[in-house]
Structure formats: C-alpha cells, structure tokens
Write a protein that binds this DNA or RNA. Structure first.
Length: 122
DNA sequence: GACTTGACATGGA
DNA sequence: CTCCATGCCAAGT
C-alpha cells in the first residue's frame, strides 16, 4: 500500500524490501523466479538490480526463500562478493528437487514460477 | 557530491 | 547461443 503521505527515506526503502520479501515468499518450493519477475511483481519493472541488493541485506536471518531467486539466464548469479552464499543457494535448490547441470544451468522452462497474477488473462 | 560497481533485464548484431 | 550497448537504482569510494 503506497500512502500519499510523505514517508522517510528509511520507510520507503524498507517498504521496497518488504515487497521484495513478500513476493519471494510466494515462490513455491521446487520452483524459481527471476529478478525481473519479482521487480515487475512489486511494480518496479526494470529495477532487477535492486532486488539483488534487497536480498543481500537480508540473506542470513532468512525465513525468506531467497535461494529461489535467480537471473533470467536460468542460472544462479555467482559473485565473489557473496562469500560463497551463491553455492549455498545452489545446494538449497538441489535439495528442493531442482536439477542443475554442470554448467549451473536451470531449466526455466520447467522450474520457472508462474504467478497467479496473470493466470489466463491473455 | 560525482564516479564506479553490482546477486539484472532486454534488444540488436 | 554469445557478445555488446543501454536502462535502472542503491551503495561504496
């Protein structure tokens, strides 16, 4: 809910993170979603990078299935900055039954989450 | 306060 | 399919 009243910067940022977390929480086990999907879902199309930042802030005390968020290439985003949490993500996905090949490629065709939002509108 | 980087996406070559 | 350029926004320097 975006109120018309003016909010502090912290509040705005916080709400953004919260929206990200809520969207991510909706991803069912055994499925994955892309950063772009999440961004579009919270009404921030094109802001995929911010999704990554939001998740980075959270990560550790995660009741959120952050590991189900991957990039559009169908691969877990690997980065030295993550201190190996990327590999943890891969492990978690595998435990949920998501098959990942040697190239770290995931079949989006098969595991990509389909939000209820659109359904059969088209 | 400007410049560079980064857990990204999309479209054209 | 891969590589390059552009857009987006926040954080670090």
């Amino acid at each position: 809910m975006v109120s018309t009243g003016r909010l502090n910067d912290m509040t705005v940022k916080k709400s953004f993170d919260l929206r990200v977390y809520e969207a991510v929480s909706q991803i069912p086990s055994g499925q994955v979603a892309t950063y772009g999907q999440i961004a579009e879902l919270i009404g921030a199309y094109g802001c995929a990078r911010q999704i990554g930042w939001s998740l980075k802030r959270l990560c550790l005390p995660s009741t959120i299935p952050w590991h189900r968020v991957i990039n559009a290439k169908g691969e877990v985003s690997m980065s030295i900055s993550r201190e190996g949490t990327d590999w943890v993500q891969i492990d978690l996905l595998k435990r949920e039954g998501v098959f990942i090949d040697q190239e770290l490629k995931i079949q989006l065709r098969r595991y990509l989450w389909k939000p209820d939002l659109f359904k059969d509108s088209e």
